[in-house]
Structures are given as C-alpha cells and as structure tokens.
Design a protein around this nucleic acid. Structure first.
Lengths: 232, 232
DNA sequence: GTATTATTAGAGTCATTACTCTAAAAGGTC
DNA sequence: GACCTTTTAGAGTAATGACTCTAATAATAC
C-alpha cells in the first residue's frame, strides 16, 4: 500500500477514535512511524487529508443511495438503505462530528459538501417517491420534502447525539451496536405514512432495532441493568 | 453591571458570533478592554465561563418547557413552545455547536448536560401527552418516546444544519429569520398525528413558517431569487 | 555507473493560546 | 490617614501544533 493511502487510513482511524480536533499531523506521522516531513510531502496540509477522506465518504454514500430503475422498491430495500448508510456513517464518524469547523476552515470543501447534501436530499426524496409508487407509503410531495430533510438531520446527527448523551464520557463507549437506535428512529419518522397493506411488515422490521435506551439511564439504573444482564 | 456579568455577556456574544473554538480568553478580555489577569480573577478558566453560560441556558429552557397543570393545552401553546425554544436556541447558539467538545473537556458539565437532556426529554413527552389529552393529536405511548427524541434531535441540530448547508460560508449569514424553517420542520414531525378536528387549524399555524429553502439554492438560483425579490 | 527524480528523516520555526505572577490601584472601615 | 480586602493591569510562560527546510537515501532511467 502506498504511503499516501496509509496516511489516509491512519488519519481516518485516529480521527474516528479521537476526533479531528485532537489528532495532530505529528500524531498521524508518529502512528505510522514516518516523519512529519514525509507526511507533508504527500499532503500539502491537514485540510488536504480531510478533503481526500471526504471524497471517499461522498462516493460511498452516493453509491448507497442509488434507486433501482428496473424494479419497484420493496420493504427490504428500506432496511438495506438504512443499514448501509449508518454503517458508512460509522466508518467516517469523525466527519459529521466537526463538520462545521471543517467547512469553515476550507471553502472548497464547503462548496463540495453543499453540493453533496443537495444530491443526497434529492436521492432520499427519490427513495420516498419509490416507496410511494410501490404502495408501501402514502405521502404527498410536500411532505416528502419535509420528511427527507428531517431524515437527513436525524441520520447525520445520530452519533453526535450519542456522544453527548451516553452515560460514559469515554469516547470508546460509542460502538456500532448503537447504530440500532438510529435506525429505529428513522423508521419512526416514516411510520405514520405506511399503508395498511405494509404496516405490519414494516413494523416487524423496525422491531429488530428496538434499542436499549442507554441515553435514559442514570448512573444507578445503568448498574442495575448491567447486573441483570450478567444474571440473565 | 458587575465585571463578572460583563465577562459572561461578552463571552456569549463572541462565542455566538465566532464559535467557542475561535474565541480565546484574550479576545474576550480585549473586547471588554480589561486585562487577561482580571478575567482570570473572576473565572478560574475558560470552562468555568462556559459552565456559567450553560447554567443560564439550562434554566431558561426548563422554564419554557413547563406544562400548565390547571388547564388543557391549546394549539397556540404548541406555537409558543416552539418559538420560545428556538429563540433560546438562537440566543445560546454557540452551545450546541461545539457541544461534543465542550462536554469532552469538562466531565462535570457532561454529567450536568446529561441530566438536563433527560429532563427536557421528559418535559417534551409531557407536552405530547398534554396535546394527546386535549385531543389535538392521537398518539401511542411508544410513539411519544420516539417522537420526542426525534424532536430533540431536529431542534438541537437545526443551527448546525444551517451553518453546514447555507449558501454562504459567512457565519453572519445565520440570522434569527432562519428559525422559521426549524419550526416548520418540527411541525412536520407531529403532523401525521393530528386529529381530524384540529388538523386544519394546526396546518394553518404551520403555514406561517414555510421557509424559503435557502439550503437548496445553487449559486445561480440564489442570484435569481434575489433579483426576483428586488423586482417584486 | 551516473544523472535525475521521488521519497524520507528529523530538527527546527513561528504563531497561537490558556493561564500565571507580581505589583499597583481602588474601595471600604475605623 | 492607616489598614485591609477586592479588583485590576500587563508582562510573561510554557505548551502546543501546523508546517518548513535541508540534506540524505532510495528508485529509476539511460
């Protein structure tokens, strides 16, 4: 693997684990046992590393959000979209964490992100139109716009929400397991629009993602439920 | 006004305008034409300033979220809740911007915030129960929990969303005017649960907040619509 | 082998920023 | 006015972190 790629991989890992703000270029170099000079030979600055990671993230997300043209959407498509998107979000979870600061520091990235957002919103709306056409939900065009935006906000804010509200202040407390609650929340957003025909089926899908709401636990209740799990 | 209060006010103003990350304690002192030493005489460190501002924010929000016990909720209560909360969010908009970092840097604040969040979530659920009891919405207990959480996420993420997706990278582009879109989005979250009896009335309320979706404009369309407004 | 280019090391720089320290001024009390 | 406490000034410190510079080494071409 080329040094350039190794730098990107290491940066992604460290950014995800500790947040972009806390990871210095010197840390990245030390982690790879290369010199700072070497790192700056491959990337002109820290922003360039972030930009390259964004490009990876962007293409991954846009791939996921494709709508099949040759066939109607099915309930399981919905599930796949959610799982893939949240997994992508997990793999690049540093991104939406410091997004505001990243964009403020890099006008080019900001423009790119805005375009990316508009594309995503369009695709999400297309998915809802697809679900509507397939008779899975029944929703007006106006509501589609609002619902797509609410979906975007909940999805992109999910990990921020967790990091702020989980019991432990430990960053490592965030795990892929916690994706489930996010998926559950997005299911809820659309639930009111389900048609009678599909309501049962979709609700059953959603049931797989009922979270143990760790953000509601107090210090004491957390200990209790941990004990219960040990006993059970 | 005491120096302590002046420091808090100036900090709030600068944090809101530029973000906590960019405002140094030296900036705050310079803004007030006092010495750094003076600032540190009143607050032991930067975190202490932030903590004090959080206490202001917290009591303001908890005041707003009270549910009247002596009477049933009315459609206009809903409106008031949203307007007051979003105004509070505006006045302390730096808070949810760098929340993750603030909490990571201050374990005491983190614990306090978690408790605050749980209180808020409870109050929001109480409000939904009130609207349910008043026959304005029809919703199950399970859905109340999910809806309250989605509402929390959309509300607290609204300004982050705007800052990331507005056309201009200029921070000052954010204005109280942009609250409207957030209020509209939250109305949408509950719309599916409205009873036949109140649907019309609530939809009319929501109509006051239809935003011009500036986050969808491209560079060109922004110019066009600006021209239109000038002509009109 | 030699010339050229691509890659790497690592010491060092420069700006930033949270915070400290000492001493002076202001305010209050008797 | 003397004494004490509170408040303020402002120079200074120590750590940090993004980035630079020079020279050495590896790779490639001919």
């Amino acid at each position: 693997m080329s040094t350039k790629e190794r730098i990107l991989d290491a940066s992604l890992q460290l950014f995800n684990e500790q947040g972009e703000r806390k990871v210095t270029t010197n840390h990245i170099a030390a982690h790879l046992a290369i010199s700072p000079g070497n790192l700056y030979y491959h990337f002109k600055n820290k922003q360039a590393i972030i930009f390259a990671l964004f490009e990876r993230y962007e293409s991954r997300v846009l791939d996921i959000l494709q709508v099949p043209e040759e066939r109607a959407l099915q309930p399981l498509d919905k599930l796949r979209y959610l799982q893939d998107i949240f997994t992508g979000l997990w793999d690049y979870r540093f991104m939406h964490r410091d997004m505001e600061h990243l964009l403020l520091a890099d006008a080019e990235l900001h423009a790119r992100y805005r375009a990316f957002f508009r594309l995503c919103l369009n695709q999400v709306q297309q998915i809802f139109r697809g679900l509507n056409a397939a008779g899975i939900i029944r929703i007006s065009e106006d509501d589609i716009a609002s619902l797509a935006l609410n979906t975007w906000i909940v999805v992109t804010s999910w990990f921020s929400f967790l990091r702020c509200n989980l019991l432990s202040a430990d960053v490592d407390a965030i795990s892929p397991e916690l994706l489930r609650g996010g998926i559950y929340q997005v299911f809820t957003l659309e639930r009111p629009y389900l048609t009678d025909e599909y309501r049962e089926a979709m609700n059953q899908l959603q049931q797989q993602f009922v979270p143990r709401p760790q953000w509601l636990e107090t210090e004491e209740s957390a200990e209790e439920s941990a004990e219960k799990e040990q006993r059970g």
